[in-house]
Design a protein around this nucleic acid. Structure first.
Lengths: 158, 158
DNA sequence: AGATAATTTCGAATTTTATTCGGAGTTGAT
DNA sequence: ATCAACTCCGAATAAAATTCGAAATTATCT
């Protein structure tokens, strides 16, 4: 048992389940749902934030409404030694890069990028990726249609 | 110009930028930030919700805190004809499946899955994926380390 | 088990925010 | 310039957030 262990009881999980579904749910509504006093619920929420169980409250915005219609996955090989992830950190700094994963197997990184169109993707690759050391190859896969895209966790009952 | 076109002005974009960063920001704080009356801001937010520019308010929860430490990408081939995406829809129904994209190239789908561990992934594949018609092959890539994972959009100034 | 400590919950009081709506002000099209 | 549509404001009211002392519950130690 290490000291950073986090214990979540049934009530915490219910809070997380409700908040994951609607981050703007009022504390009062939460309390009603859980049949608890608002003050008690508030305290739990604050603790979940402090413990970093709750990472962030975010608004999902329609990419289409903002004209960001191109999504791509880029499998990348890097020549940097294992153990270092500077390449990944550099990639992570680029706002259009939504995800950077170090993956098992041949390709070192799986990168997810969202831009306005293929032209802006090209521009991004030319202006940003090209500046990053150690990238030896990239294989870009364009998304034609997204059927599901969320990161809702499966929260156990208990 | 089709009727479903959405016009977003500078103020809307500011609202989206602030709300994307913190979905629980109060309307009062939003109004202060934008130097507008709360009532005016509220009206804009409601409209952004109605127009589906704002898709959802969600809470990002630490997967580690919930013991969901395995992330994998699965490239899948399907024998279903183009134009149909029933396979994708079936995949989308599975809660552990966070993303389903129809991609260009050889593999038909790119699927992102999050589970507790490799055992639960195996279980998922045996119990759920195997029931879905038309999946002819899968190639699973395990994520060793996630350096960045978000879906914050790049919101233009104007 | 019993005592003690730590944590959690409650409830009431206060501050802050959300929401409503009539009317003024703007913008844009004709 | 006129009209319509939209946006904003401000004040009033309803609702929610926050605080905090005390009670209740739970965990720990002997």
């Amino acid at each position: 048992m290490n000291g950073t262990d986090i214990v979540l009881d049934k009530t915490d999980l219910s809070i997380l389940r409700l908040m994951q579904e609607n981050a703007r749910m009022t504390n009062a509504d939460l309390a009603r749902e859980l049949e608890m006093a608002p003050s008690a619920v508030l305290e739990r929420v604050k603790k979940l934030e402090q413990k970093q169980v709750i990472v962030k409250y975010t608004t999902r915005i329609s990419p289409v409404a903002l004209g960001q219609t191109l999504l791509a996955f880029i499998a990348m090989k890097s020549s940097e030694g294992m153990g270092s992830n500077n390449t990944a950190k550099e990639l992570a700094k680029i706002p259009e890069v939504q995800e950077v994963h170090h993956i098992a197997g041949d390709d070192c990184y799986m990168v997810k990028v969202r831009t306005a169109d293929s032209a802006s993707l090209m521009e991004l690759m030319r202006n940003k990726f090209s500046k990053i050391q150690n990238i030896t190859s990239t294989r870009t896969t364009i998304v034609l249609e997204t059927v599901k895209e969320e990161q809702q966790l499966v929260i156990p009952e208990k």
